[in-house]
Design a protein around this nucleic acid. Structure first.
Length: 423
RNA sequence: GGAGAGGUGGCAGAGUGGUCGAUUGCACCUGACUUGAAAUCAGGCGAGCCCGCGAGGGUUCCGGGGGUUCGAAUCCCUCCCUCUCCGCCA
């Protein structure tokens, strides 16, 4: 949610920003709703002030006296009117709030123009994908023994499509990756949290999953709880409706969780194997910072994520997402894509974003500055990293002629061996 | 799951229908005293929204929602949560 005052005073800038994002929003309707709301509030409050004054006067009158009785009769009408006005305030506020929720965040000036994915800008690249292209390279699902090590069939039987079992050394490799990601995050100054995997509607609303993306989450109706689509939800909500101290900023947290996504309607040719799952593991990096720091924090967040791929020796590129392809709440966004030599394509393994105050306003996360003034914080998050696609890249890029997979040096500490035998 | 008790400002803890956004203590901030600190004293010290250039004024919020009343932290309904005991269970 944008700052209503900012929207009121910088309507043109918002209009331009929204246009850059290619979103269709009736800003005039939002402004009109704001106008109606403020009018209703003013009207209600002056009526209420009159009622309060009269009630205070009544408190001094002896109960049951003729003046008192007369006053009660007189006040009944005012009371009814106040109630009516109160209701119209509630109506005006809720429709204004609904209108506000339709307005996306505006892109940072440094975000490039563009309509769609194809217009994203390669901001950085590391490693040499060409070196990994060979006739022997194959998609991970075609590696002999894959079906046994990552058992989709059993997953279908037990749960459904997109819920594979990782078996034996493959399970160990998954666990090693989680450990490695978490250790890396700790080295980079993030405090680990182990978070709830189900959240209530208030939390899902605060981070923006509700109401728009309701269909993407699994829901447990008996208790009205949602399975988290990302650790971003519980980790960000940790500070919901709280006021942080400026001295504590930036706050950096990381969390490992399984993530659950229904992925309704997003299955196609490019989502075989590990490329898209209903349940997958991820370590998420989350930051809360002062507004003047968010762009710098985004750069360091991106660097934190990039370093993981370097340590794993996986070629990658960084895309600066263009205005037309950036998400609704985002101000600026980088995607990290790892090279999967067998599929010969880039796979997104991290999305690092700044939300400015957009998400924090919705979540009620603020900070108190040195003068004691309260402001909305800026929030950022990024994956560090999403596990299955990293695993896919390792399997495809490190496949040896004998069918085994070389385990990256960085993982051996936890994996215990330098090679993984499938099958 | 059953029975009982309770949810008030950063914390502790008063307040059971009327001038209560709320006594008091702690914490915190400012000032005085002090070479400095401690102690002491004085003052300040929640958030949201509306009006106003501003100074400032108004209004809402005592777990959430609804109700009764001229008036609700206080009474009623309902939901959520916490604690104690019992039951069940990893």
């Amino acid at each position: 949610m944008l700052d209503p005052k900012f929207l009121r005073e910088n309507t043109d800038a918002v209009r331009k920003g929204v246009a850059r994002k290619k979103f269709q929003v009736d800003l005039d309707a939002v402004l009109a709703a704001d106008e109606r709301r403020r009018h209703a509030v003013t009207e209600f409050e002056s009526a209420r002030a009159g009622q309060n004054a009269a009630n205070q006067a009544m408190a001094k009158l002896p109960k049951g006296s003729p003046e008192f009785v007369a006053k009660v009769a007189e006040m009944k009408a005012l009371s009814a009117k106040v109630k009516e006005l109160e209701k119209s305030v509630a109506d005006a506020e809720s429709s204004w709030r609904d209108a506000c929720l339709t307005v996306p965040n505006i892109p940072d000036p440094s975000v490039p123009e563009g309509r769609a994915e194809a217009d994203n800008v390669v901001a950085a690249a590391w490693g040499d994908p060409a070196a990994l292209v060979s006739a022997a390279a194959k998609p991970h699902w075609d590696i002999p023994g894959f079906a046994k090590a990552i058992d989709f069939e059993r997953g279908v039987k037990v749960t459904g499509a997109g819920f594979p079992f990782y078996v034996g050394d493959m399970a160990r490799l998954v666990r090693s990756l989680v450990q490695f990601f978490l250790e890396h995050a700790a080295e980079r100054g993030y405090t680990e949290v182990h978070a709830p995997l189900l959240v209530n509607p208030a939390s899902a609303t605060a981070t923006g999953q509700l109401p728009d993306k309701e269909g993407q989450m699994y829901h447990a109706p008996t208790d009205d709880l949602y399975l988290i689509p990302t650790a971003e939800v519980p980790v960000t909500n940790f500070f919901r409706d709280e006021i942080l101290s400026a001295a504590d900023l930036p706050v950096k947290r990381c969390g490992y969780t399984p993530c659950f996504r229904r992925e309704a309607g997003s299955w196609g040719a490019h989502v075989r194997g590990l490329n898209r799952l209903h349940q997958f593991d991820k370590v998420e990096l989350v930051k809360w910072c002062a507004p003047d720091r968010s762009l710098a924090e985004l750069e360091s967040l991106r660097e934190d994520a990039e370093l993981i791929l370097r340590k794993l020796n996986l070629p990658y590129r960084v895309l600066l997402i263009c205005a037309g392809d950036i998400g609704f709440p985002h101000s600026k966004q980088y995607d990290l894509e790892v090279w999967a030599g067998g599929q010969r394509r880039w796979l997104e393994v991290s999305s690092c974003s700044s939300f400015t105050d957009f998400q924090a306003r919705r979540a009620g996360i603020r900070y108190r500055d040195a003068e004691g003034k309260v402001h909305t914080v800026h929030t950022l998050n990024g994956s560090g990293l999403g596990l299955p696609r990293v695993l896919a890249a390792i399997l495809e890029n490190n496949l040896r002629p004998d069918g085994s997979v070389a385990v990256p040096e960085a993982l051996r500490r936890w994996f215990g061996k330098d090679s993984l035998a499938l099958g």
